[in-house]
Amino acid sequence: MAEVDPTDAIEFDRSVVGVDYDVGSHEVTEEQVVGFAMAIGETNPFYLDKEEASKGPHGVLIAPPAYYTSIRLQPGPDPQVKFGTTSFNASQHCEFYEHMRVGDTISAKEQISHVFAKTGRTGTLVFTVRRTTYSNQHGRTVMMVESSNVRRDMTQ
């Protein structure tokens, strides 16, 4: 007998899967880079000190790799998963190709790469995997992140 895929029973908008959406752009500013670095407790002067950074290999303040987590863009595609009472970060897969630098304009495209359900001993979990690609003003891709978000029913 064929195994039933639990994803088949989950209601969501399948039309957004695999489609790239432009989610706008972000100016990398000294204020936000330094603010992010301080919030995390970074000590690297290349993220914190404009004078020191200007003497370094980049010639300007650069953003820590995880800076992208502080970038707010337009809302991306929403598969409108009808399941669960809450959602959490499940995983992040990041590839960093170039530093983001103060003065850069970063534009991003986002797609829902897949939605799937898993049923285990704690019940059913529904995962949404979102891929965001960030490019700078020179048209070069500076990083890509695939973030997986899990929805679960906390009342169970």
Binding site: P64, A66, Q92, C94
Partner: peptide, 19 residues
């Protein structure tokens, strides 16, 4: 990310992080 960039130093670079 901070642990890894601190370790890699000014001449090194974090290229992938999968958590």
């Amino acid at each position: 990310s901070q642990l890894l960039t601190d370790w890699a130093g000014d001449q090194g670079r974090l290229t992938k992080l999968d958590v």
